[in-house]
Every structure is written in C-alpha cells, then in structure tokens.
C-alpha cells in the first residue's frame, strides 16, 4: 500500500513536469540526465523510459487524456531510474516485463532468457530485454550471483561456470522482476570450482597456484592471467572467470576458478589464495560476500563471509588469505 502511494507521488511529480513542459525545455540538471545526449537517441531503446511512464500512469487515477507521451528515450534508463530514485527515496523502479504491452515501436517488452551448456562446464546465458536497455541486472546461479548491465538494445550475454548439472539461472531486474531458465551441463562433475562472491569492493582477487607455481609463474591463474575455458577442455589446467561489472550501482562481483580435476595425468595440489588490496578506499571496511566450493564429489560447500579489512594505518599492503578457499587436491586419473 505504501509502495503504491509512493509510486503515485513519484508519478505525480513527473506528470506535473510533463504538463508544464518543464522537463524537456529546461536545461537544468535533472532534465538533462533524464533526457541524455541527443546523439544517443535511438527509437528502439526508448522503450524503458516509456514503459516506466506507462506504469506510473496506471498508478494515477486521473491523468489528462491529451497528454503527449514525451520522448525521454535515450537508452539510458539505468541512469533514468537512478535519478528517479534520487528524487524520491521511496521510488520503486517500475516493473518492466509486461509481455502484452508493446513499445510504441511495436517491440514486445517480454524479456527472453536462454541458457545453453558450453565447453568447460560453462553456461552460455543470453538475455534479450528490449525494454530494459542499459539496465542493472543481477544474474544468479544458485549461490553464485553478480550484477551487470544490459547494452543499449537490452541485450546481455555472459558465460557462467556451472556449479550443478541441472543449472538454474535467474536474472533479476531493477524493479525486482525475475526470469529464470535452466541448462543441463553434463560436464560439471569433471570440474572442481572455487568461488568468491563479494559486494564489489575493488582490489579483491582469487589466485590459483597450480602444481607448486609461484607468483608470476605460468601456473598462476588470476584476473591478470585468467586463461579460457578451452584450457580446461584440453586438460591443460584451470581457468578463471570474472563475473559482474564494477561500474554499476551497488556492484556485486564474483571470481570463479575452475579446474578439470577428472582428466589430470599427475598428482598434486592447486593452492587457492584470496587477496585483498588494503587501500584508502577499503581499509577499515567490511567486505560482505560468500565463498562456494564444489569438490570432485560434486558436493557444494557455501558459506557467508564478512571480511574485516585491516585498519587504515596499514593501507597500501595486501591481506592474503590462504585458508578462505581450500586447496584443491588433484589425484591422477
């Protein structure tokens, strides 16, 4: 009930703005952010803002029938909703996935999510959401979750390491709307996986040292030397997948190290390290996230994590954690 009233308030604010023509004519900062640069105006991506307005209209009992739908379209709806949120703390981003409502340009708004198995026990995720261009989305695969942004056409694709054979993938939009799909990833059993999910503080990394490798050696796998799933497919060693976008609002990031444990021809160990740079931005703060480990037995171990960064007088160093993720014991097959 409260939500609805807040939505109505937000809508009313907008309607007044539309009615006076203030929004489009005034060069003030709010309107400028809402309108965006003219050269980016693109009919096919104008929909999100339009959708939002439709929803807002629905929440208002009486809206003048002759009101012209303004073209707010800029393909920057993420900024748009963010600005609205800033205008009204109670603002709820509108629900954008009403399948029956076409955009003014007759493109169905219904988002389409597909997931297909890919080499390296990966899931190729494809999202098409024409009415949610440049929107923040959260992608979830069980306890593995991260935030990213769709492109200006509302498309998004990502390759996610599967943690389970029957892999469910959810995408959540800003308003809380969610769509799900599934993929069957038969090669999951062949891979050990170690995952760090965190709230987007910069400077955190997972590092894997394969078979006695040291910093800088070829056997060190991390964001600076991630390799590709092909490396795993060919049983040459592990690979790292970085997920999430550090530039979105409230970033959620993840790093996944995958190792093809079932096809190794030597015994040994992969040492797992989580490294956190202690900077002026991160010192004294608490990193919130979770760790996930999938062993050769297919058992998943997931734990919530709060990592207390060292005090600011130690800024400039690194916090190296050798026991947050278990070392992977590799037995020859």
């Amino acid at each position: 009930m409260i939500d609805r009233r807040r939505l109505a308030t937000a809508g009313l604010t907008l309607a007044v703005a539309f009615g006076t023509g203030y929004l489009m004519q005034n060069g003030g900062s709010v309107a400028a952010r809402l309108a965006g640069p003219a050269e980016k105006a693109n009919p096919s991506v104008s929909a999100p803002a339009e959708e939002a307005v439709d929803e807002v209209k629905a929440a208002l009992p009486e809206l003048p029938a002759d009101i012209a739908v303004p073209d707010l379209g800029t393909g920057r709806s993420i900024i748009h909703t963010r600005r609205l949120a800033a205008l009204d703390s109670g603002f709820q981003a509108p629900v954008l996935s009403d399948a029956s409502t076409p955009t003014p340009f007759e493109i169905a708004c219904k988002p389409v999510l597909t997931a297909n198995p890919a080499p390296g026990a990966m899931i190729d995720v494809q999202l098409t959401t024409p009415c949610n261009g440049n929107s923040r989305i959260t992608v979830q695969h069980g306890p593995l979750s991260f935030a990213d942004v769709t492109d200006s056409d509302g498309n998004y694709s990502v390759s996610v390491p599967a943690l389970q054979k029957e892999a469910k993938v959810d995408v959540t939009f800003e308003g809380g709307d969610r769509i799900s799909t599934k993929a069957l990833v038969l090669t999951v059993d062949g891979y050990n996986r170690s995952v760090l999910v965190w709230d987007g503080q910069p400077g955190l990394h997972v590092r894997a040292f394969e078979f006695g490798a040291d910093y800088g050696d070829a056997g060190e796998v991390w964001a600076g030397a991630p390799r590709s799933p092909e490396h795993g497919v060919q049983a040459l060693g592990g690979f790292l997948t970085q997920l999430g976008n550090p530039d979105v609002l409230n970033p959620e990031l993840a790093e996944v190290y995958s190792f093809p444990a079932d096809r190794m021809t030597k015994d040994g160990v992969v040492r797992m390290i989580v490294e956190a740079a202690v900077t002026d931005q991160t010192c004294g703060k608490v990193v919130v996230g979770n760790t996930i480990e999938v062993g050769a037995d297919g058992q998943m171990r997931e734990v919530a994590l709060e990592l207390a960064m060292p005090d600011c007088d130690t800024a400039g160093g690194f916090l190296v954690l050798k026991n947050l993720l278990q070392d992977m014991k590799i037995a020859r097959n």
Partner: peptide, 23 residues
C-alpha cells in the same frame, strides 16, 4: 575447524557466517 563448524551448523539447521580478520 572451518569444515567441522560449517558441517555442524548445517546439521543443527543454522546458517553459518564466517567473519574473517586473517587466516
């Protein structure tokens, strides 16, 4: 201890939150 405490938590129906200062 980490594996043991996590398993204990799970068995007892708790969810475990690991607060880490260092190793």
């Amino acid at each position: 201890m980490p594996v043991l405490i996590e398993t204990f938590a799970e068995r007892q129906g708790y969810s475990a939150l690991r607060r880490v200062t260092d190793d």
